[in-house]
Design a protein around this nucleic acid. Structure first.
Lengths: 213, 213
DNA sequence: CGTGTTTGACTGACTGTTCAATCTAATCGG
DNA sequence: CCGATTAGATTGAACAGTCAGTCAAACACG
C-alpha cells in the first residue's frame, strides 16, 4: 500500500532500469511468472527498492508493458522519418512488426503483446491503454497513406478503413511469426502484407521529389 | 508428482467437468490467476481430486486450453456442414470468430486465445499444439475455397495462400473485437472480413444445386 | 542534519501438492 | 445370494515452499 516514490528526473534512470528489466523478464517468462525478486536482481537492486518505486507488483509489471510498447512505437515513428516514399515506409512498418530484428535497446516486444492483450482483456485500465496505443499505430498508417496520396503515390482509398484492415492483418501475421508457425515464416509474412498494401493502395511510383521540380 | 489417473470412459465426465470449469476460470481471471482450489470448487470437487486427475496445476490448465479450443473448432466444423455455399460458410466462420455469440456449452474462447498464445510463446509443447490447431483452421478454409471452386462459385485463387492471409486477418480482427476496441466493433469487423473474402475470391452466385440439374 | 534512497531481515498469507484414511461400487468365490 | 476383496474415487488436514509487501535501520549527500 505504501505509495510509490514519485517520478522525478533523478529517479528516472533507476526507474527505467527496472522497467526494462521487468519487460525483459515478462518477455522471457511471462507476466504471471515474473517475480519482483528477479526484476530486482536484474536491475541490480533490492526487492524492497522495487516496491519502493512502484508500490506494487502489478503496477510494476503493467508499467513495464506500457513502457515497452511505448518505446516500440516511438522507435517506429522515428524510423519512419528516415524514408520518403509511402512504399518504403510501409515496408519498414511491416518489417518492424513481422520480422525479428530487435535491434532496439528495448526487448523485442514479441512476447509482450500476448501478455498485454491478456491483461487488457480483463483489466479496464490496461484495456484503455492498449486501445490508445493501437489508435496511435493506426494513425501512423493513416498519415503514411495520406502523405502518399498527396504525393500521387497512392490512389484513392479511405485511409482509415485501410489502416484498420491493414493493422489487423499485421497483428495476425505477427502472431504467426512470433509463434514461429511453420507455414508463415517472416519472409512470407512480409510478402503477404506488402502485396496487400500495394494492391490495396494502388501504389505507383512517387512523383519526383520536390527538389527536382 | 503423483502420476495422474488415466483417462477412462468412466472418468471422462468428471474430467470434462473440471476442464470446463478450468476453461471458464481461465477465461475470467486469466491463466496465471486461476487457482486449483477455484477450479475444484466450481467442479464441485476437492483440490486433491483435481490433482489426482491431472497431476499438476500446469497440466490441468494447459489441458483446459486445449480442450476449449478443440471444442471451438469442433463446433465450427460441425456448423459448416449445415450450409452449402462458400459464401454462407465463410460468413458463418467470420461470425464465429468475430461476433460474440458464445451459444456453445463451451465458454467463449475469447480470452483463452490470449493465454493460449502467451503459453505457446514460451512452452514448446503448447506451441506445437497451437500450430496444429491453426493448421486445422486453415484446412477448413482451404476446403471451403476448393469446394467453392468446384461449384463455380469461387474464381481461381491459391486456396492455401488465401487461407493464410484470411486467417491472419480474422485473428487480427478478433483481437480488436475481443478487446472491444471502439473503432472495430463486431459488425464492422464482420464487414471487413466478408468484403475481403468476396473480393479476393471473386465470389459469384453458386451454380444451381445438383438436385435441380 | 534532513531528505530522499536503499537494504536486509522478516512475516503473513497463499497455494500447490502429499498423504493417510474413508467411501463406493463393482467383482468374485463359494 | 452374500460376505470378502479390491480398485478406483474422494476428501480433510497437514506440509512446505514461495513471494509480495512491511519496517526499522543504515546510507548518501547536498
Amino acid at each position: 500500500m505504501a505509495d510509490m516514490a514519485p517520478a522525478t528526473p533523478s529517479n528516472e534512470a533507476r526507474r527505467n532500469q527496472m522497467l526494462r528489466a521487468a519487460a525483459e523478464l515478462i518477455c522471457e517468462r511471462g507476466f504471471g511468472e515474473t517475480r519482483i525478486a528477479d526484476v530486482a536482481k536484474r536491475a541490480r537492486a533490492s526487492s524492497a527498492l522495487v516496491i519502493y518505486y512502484f508500490g506494487t507488483r502489478d503496477r510494476l509489471l503493467v508499467d513495464a508493458l506500457r513502457y515497452s510498447e511505448q518505446n516500440f512505437y516511438d522507435a517506429a515513428e522515428k524510423m519512419l522519418t528516415e524514408v520518403e516514399s509511402a512504399r518504403d515506409r510501409l515496408s519498414l512498418l511491416i518489417r518492424w512488426t513481422c520480422v525479428p530484428e530487435n535491434d532496439g535497446d528495448v526487448p523485442g516486444a514479441w512476447g509482450l503483446w500476448f501478455d498485454l492483450w491478456a491483461q487488457a482483456f480483463r483489466h479496464p485500465e490496461v484495456k484503455q491503454d492498449r486501445e490508445e496505443l493501437d489508435a496511435r499505430w493506426r494513425a501512423m498508417i493513416v498519415s503514411i497513406v495520406k502523405a502518399g496520396q498527396a504525393g500521387g503515390e497512392v490512389g484513392s482509398v479511405n485511409p482509415r478503413a485501410f489502416a484498420v484492415t491493414f493493422s489487423a492483418l499485421l497483428d495476425g501475421l505477427s502472431i504467426q511469426v512470433a509463434l514461429d508457425d511453420s507455414e508463415v515464416d517472416p519472409e512470407s509474412a512480409y510478402k503477404i502484407a506488402m502485396d496487400y498494401a500495394v494492391r490495396e493502395l494502388g501504389l505507383r511510383k512517387p512523383r519526383r521529389k520536390r527538389v527536382a521540380s
